[in-house]
C-alpha cells in the first residue's frame, strides 16, 4: 500500500463510521437498503453491485462489527475479537478458494446455491416470513457494504493465517 493509499484508507476508516452515523438516523433516513437488480452467471454475480470496487478496510469493519456480524458464525483472521462462531466455515484463506463473483453471490443470496443453508441472504427482500417491520423491504446490508465485504474477503488469500 502506497503512503497516499494508506492515508485515504485512514481517512475512510475514521470518517466512514462518522458519516454512516449521520446517515443512519432512522428507518426512513438516507440509508441505501434498496435492492438493485443484479445478474447471476453460474455460481457467481460477476459484476459489482455498485459498479465500483469495494473498500477492504471497511469490509473488515463490517465483518467484525454488528452490521455484518460475520463473526457470529465464522472464524475469521480478526484476532482482536475474542469470540468467533463456528456455525459456518472458517473464512481464513477464502479469497484463495472463491472468486469475487462467487463471494458476492454467497453474500447476496446463498439460498440460490443451497435452499437449506442457514446462511442468511444479506441482499434480499423476498421469500422471508414475519420480518420485523423495521427491516421489512430493506436488505440486511447495502450494495456498498456487500462490495466492501467482497473486497475484504477476496483479499483473504493466505491459508496459513491463524485466527485464534
Amino acid at each position: 500500500m502506497t503512503p497516499t493509499r494508506s492515508l485515504i484508507a485512514l481517512v475512510i476508516r475514521w470518517c466512514g463510521p462518522l458519516c454512516a452515523g449521520l446517515l443512519v438516523a432512522g428507518p426512513g433516513a438516507a440509508v441505501d437498503r434498496e435492492l438493485r437488480p443484479y445478474e447471476v452467471v453460474g455460481d457467481e454475480i460477476p459484476l459489482s453491485l455498485t459498479g465500483a470496487p469495494g473498500d477492504p478496510i471497511r469490509g473488515r469493519e463490517i465483518a467484525a462489527g454488528r452490521e455484518g456480524n460475520c463473526l457470529a458464525c465464522h472464524h475469521m483472521p480478526i484476532p482482536e475479537e475474542q469470540f468467533h462462531g463456528d456455525i459456518g466455515p472458517d473464512l481464513s484463506g477464502i479469497g484463495a478458494r472463491l472468486s469475487p463473483g462467487a463471494l458476492r453471490l454467497r453474500l447476496v443470496d446463498p439460498k440460490r446455491l443451497n435452499a437449506a443453508t442457514i446462511m442468511p441472504a444479506f441482499y434480499a427482500v423476498e421469500g422471508l416470513e414475519r420480518v420485523d417491520p423495521y427491516y421489512r423491504g430493506r436488505t440486511a446490508l447495502s450494495a456498498q457494504q456487500i462490495e466492501d465485504l467482497v473486497a475484504y474477503l477476496a483479499g483473504l488469500t493466505d491459508e496459513s493465517v491463524d485466527t485464534n
Binding site: I118, P120, L128
Partner: peptide, 12 residues
C-alpha cells in the same frame, strides 16, 4: 418455520 430477515427456524 423460518422467520425474520435472518430467515432462521428454531430447529436450525
Amino acid at each position: 418455520q423460518r422467520v425474520g430477515q435472518m430467515d432462521l427456524a428454531c430447529t436450525m
